[in-house]
């Protein structure tokens, strides 16, 4: 009787350990500092003569993702504000100045994942509404962003041109809008010259190498 109880306890312990191992193996940490420099955020603001469009490429951060449990995703993505560029040099100076993004004082835009809802599969992709804390120019607001997750298993080596390198890739895509006034970017000012709504388009890939 005692032996049976001990055996059951051992079996349970082994099962729990195995589950924990599988879970930790399935959740991968993806590094979004892309060596190929492909990761980008594009922004667009409407203006009378032409839309102001630009790109940010200084992206870093990590995201923990499990393809079997995508709702458990955590992580943060950081954009280096100095990496933001526009085609017109004067416009670029204004963008980085204290009135607009104040790049010298606020060198990063940060998005930190809080929770994910409405997760569902869409073909080979997973779609979900990611709620997180977005910090721009020192102002933090909760935003909900529809994000598409694409897990590319065993594609790291092919991407970096090194077949010996084993690992997975996670591609995140999101399109959303924020209001510049809410983030202390010239609030209520120059609205006749530059729209208050900033359209953002994010396309980033993270890598999780395997030993």
């Amino acid at each position: 009787m005692k032996n049976t109880s001990l055996r059951s306890s051992l079996q349970l312990a082994v099962a729990l350990s195995a589950t924990a191992l599988i879970a930790s193996a399935a959740t991968q940490s993806f590094d979004f500092k892309d060596p190929k420099g492909v990761n980008n955020v594009q922004f667009k603001l409407d203006a009378p003569l032409e839309s102001i469009t630009g790109t940010g490429t200084g992206i870093s951060g990590t995201v923990s993702f499990d393809g079997a449990a995508p709702e458990s995703v955590t992580g943060r993505i950081v954009l280096d504000t100095a990496s933001l560029t526009v085609g017109n040099p004067l416009m670029g100076e204004h963008l980085r100045s204290a009135n607009w993004l104040d790049v010298a004082k606020y060198p990063a835009i940060v998005f930190e994942v809080v929770k994910v809802a409405n997760v569902h599969a869409k073909g080979a992709q997973i779609v979900g509404d990611v709620t997180g804390r977005l910090t721009v120019k020192g102002v933090t607001k909760d935003v909900t962003v529809p994000v598409t997750f694409t897990l590319l298993a065993d594609k790291l080596g092919a991407r970096l041109g090194n077949e010996k390198l084993k690992g997975d890739l996670l591609v995140l895509r999101a399109n959303f809008e924020i209001n510049r006034s809410e983030y202390d970017i010239m609030p209520g000012q120059s609205t006749d010259k530059v729209d208050e709504v900033i359209h953002l388009s994010l396309s980033i890939a993270g890598a999780a190498p395997r030993a």
């Binding site: 190929k36 492909v38 990761n39 980008n40 594009q42 790109t55 560029t85 085609g87 694409t150 590319l152 594609k155 092919a158 991407r159 890739l169 591609v171 396309s203 980033i204 890939a205």
Partner: peptide, 11 residues
């Protein structure tokens, strides 16, 4: 980018 399918701008 062929592998990830990401379209990215190069300035």
């Amino acid at each position: 980018d062929e592998i990830t399918g990401i379209d990215y701008p190069v300035r």
